[in-house]
């Protein structure tokens, strides 16, 4: 290391792993545009994007929690509970801004509570959020009481039908969200701490970073994003039924893993996650467009997750080998 690199602020470059996801995403798009005549139509691409907006927003938060080495499987049930509150408030014609505020607040409270369970009560993240998920799922049953919310007033339709500057609203919305969180995770100390704690909680504590606070912040932010996604969900479906959010946690974890975030924590980025979300969404879209039986959808996503972890391992091993080789070369030079 030379002196100048110590003075210059650390600017992480996108890793090879992210390029890998982006490249297979591009290959996927090329293949589907050749084999399906409907795939490249503006209408279809917009549909894919619109239908994965809430997943994409939740996955930002999931990335942060997984970089910390944690996981949150309560996001689907949390989204369901918030969506029911949103539905109730829509039926009573509350101010949309107020509804939005309450949704994000509720989500944040759930997220922070998860964070407390994981840090203060020291319950492993997968167990704590599994418990919360079950409790919230029971709450959904209790709150809906057998009567689903259908035909809700279409207030948050910006995300379903809206256009901003001639572009579909989700494009703008996701660009803003991902840019903000990319900056947060790349340049803002609080964001950088997430990587530090994810790599080694002990080492970060020794260097004065509060691992507890970082984790609570990450779970809280994930909660806020889940709350916001509930608005998108209700805008998209104008209904809340009993299975709401059933698949969200698994879909989000799959997207984050395919996007290159290490399941062991410490590595990953929102750019990779966005590529992961799109990759899975386009894969599912292609499966329907090509008329492949639905059963294969689950199998394909399963294979993708395993492949991603394998690719991760290969990349890690190779970079470690390179490091070792470099090190030994340096020693030889001495």
């Amino acid at each position: 290391m030379n002196k100048s690199s110590r003075v210059r602020p650390y600017i992480p470059k996108p890793s090879r792993r992210e390029y890998f996801t982006i490249i297979i995403l591009v290959i996927e798009i090329i293949i589907f545009s050749i084999v399906s005549k409907n795939f490249l139509s503006a209408n279809n691409l917009e549909t894919v994007l619109r239908n994965s907006t809430d997943l994409a927003v939740v996955s930002i938060g999931m990335t942060m929690v997984m970089v910390l080495g944690g996981i949150d499987i309560s996001v689907g049930s949390a989204l369901g509970v918030v969506a029911i509150f949103v539905g109730w408030m829509l039926q009573r014609e509350f101010n949309p801004v107020l509804i939005g505020f309450v949704a994000v607040l509720l989500g944040t409270i759930i997220g922070v509570f998860n964070g407390f369970l994981v840090t203060k009560a020291k319950i492993p993240a997968i167990i704590a959020t599994l418990g919360i998920s079950n409790i919230l799922r029971a709450a959904i049953f209790g709150m809906l009481g057998g009567s689903w919310l259908t035909g809700l007033p279409q207030v948050f339709t910006l995300f379903t039908k809206g256009h901003i500057l001639g572009l579909p609203a989700p494009v703008i919305l996701l660009s803003i969200f991902y840019f903000i969180f990319w900056v947060f995770l790349t340049y803002i100390p609080a964001g950088r701490h997430i990587y530090a704690v994810g790599n080694s909680a002990e080492a970060s504590t020794l260097s004065g970073i509060s691992a507890t606070r970082t984790q609570i912040v990450a779970f809280g932010l994930l909660g806020s994003l889940v709350g916001f996604s509930a608005l998108i969900y209700v805008g998209r479906l104008a209904s809340v039924e009993i299975t709401v959010g059933n698949d969200l946690a698994m879909a989000s974890i799959a997207a984050v893993v395919v996007g290159g975030t290490s399941v062991k924590g410490g590595k990953g980025s929102v750019i990779g996650t966005l590529a992961g979300v799109l990759f899975i969404a386009i894969m599912k879209n292609g499966i329907v467009l090509l008329g492949i039986p639905s059963l294969w959808e689950k199998a394909v996503v399963g294979v993708l997750i395993i492949l991603s972890v394998v690719v991760d391992l290969v990349f890690t091993q190779r970079s470690e080998r390179q490091k070792r080789e470099q090190l030994s070369k340096q020693r030889m030079a001495i």
């Binding site: 279809n44 239908n51 059933n246 698949d247 008329g291």
Partner: peptide, 24 residues
């Protein structure tokens, strides 16, 4: 033309697959 199945019968998945059927 086709019979699609949804994960857990969720409305969200049904919405997506119905839209894709209309595209196809």
């Amino acid at each position: 033309v086709d019979t699609r199945y949804t994960t857990g019968g969720s409305s969200e998945d049904a919405l997506r697959q119905a839209e894709e059927l209309m595209t196809r």
